[in-house]
Write a protein that binds this DNA or RNA. Structure first.
Lengths: 171, 171
DNA sequence: TATTGTTATACTCTATAACTATA
DNA sequence: TATAGTTATAGAGTATAACAATA
């Protein structure tokens, strides 16, 4: 494609166009049809919904993820937690510090390997997880209210397949 | 759901379980079935693929977005660019500085409104956009290689619908 | 008064290197 | 030597407040 073709394709508007002053008329230049961009924008909108839904519990998405995995795998090590969530072990440290300071989780020494800690939720942590789970189910219903349960399952399948494809390319 | 039910649901494993030492056996506690988490993980994988694909051109996703929108809307203002991409105007500044330093885009004074600048791609910017577009088409094909063209369109539709749903909830 | 671009700032997420104590 | 956790640090992305110039 030569420059002339590019100009024709991309110069649909110019500063002389009165519509220029209207934000809604800004073209995204095909961005909206890219999987990566659609993923980012949708993820951001869903993330904002999460923040709104969980702000009174003072829980960010990453904290929800930690609590959920620790709750489901009591006794696991930090390195395992990080591997499961694809979070570098260096970045797990301060996240767990936060949970410990809030008395939601604890690090316990492991007799068999004194380098590592076994992670558990506290009573308070388990109670919070229960609340988070319940609210998460409601949030999920709201998010899927337009696409329906079938659409939701299709979406999860497509996302998993695209992720696996990208992971293979990234190997 | 009481604590006992929660324990039953979440304590499938314990530190006494020998499988504990195997990372693959860490349960995500339903995380994998949440739209938000699936979005995040897929977006991360696709983002990494983008970085790999465009690293030789030294272009990050956000830079691709800027170049694409400026190329498609020559003469638009920074505030319009930011509104179209949902980037705060304060954060647009340094991104545009980068593009100007690399001689990919320029800020031109606007006679009608001396507060704002009209944005244009340079020749070099237009040439880069052309390369980016071509490579983007290939990347899109690779990402959709498993789900197919039909799956890709389904995915984009579902993502748009979920985003619109979340945006409504966030209003 | 409101808007455009700018600066300063801060917080989160992510990534790497180097350190310690254990294995 | 290798591994688990830690610390320090740096780069991005995102958010707000305040400012100057202009409308």
């Amino acid at each position: 494609m030569g420059k002339t073709a590019l100009m024709k394709r991309y110069s649909r508007r110019d500063e002389s166009d009165p519509a220029r002053s209207c934000t809604e008329n800004v073209e995204l230049g095909g961005l909206a049809d890219l999987i990566g961009y659609a993923l980012k924008r949708t993820q951001l909108a869903v993330y904002q919904d999460f923040q709104r839904t969980f702000s009174d519990l003072n829980v960010r998405p990453v904290q929800y993820a930690l609590i959920s995995v620790i709750g489901c795998n009591p006794g696991l090590k930090q390195s395992q937690l990080g591997a499961a969530l694809e979070i570098k072990r260096a970045n797990i440290v301060s996240l767990l510090d936060e949970l410990e300071e809030r008395n939601l989780a604890i690090r316990s020494p492991v007799a068999a390997d004194r380098r590592s800690y076994a992670l558990h939720l506290t009573e308070k942590g388990m109670e919070l997880l229960e609340k988070l789970q319940e609210r998460s189910v409601e949030e999920e219903k709201r998010l899927a209210s337009r696409i329906g349960q079938k659409g939701r399952e299709q979406l999860l399948t497509l996302l998993r397949e695209v992720r696996e494809t990208a992971d293979q390319l990234n190997q």
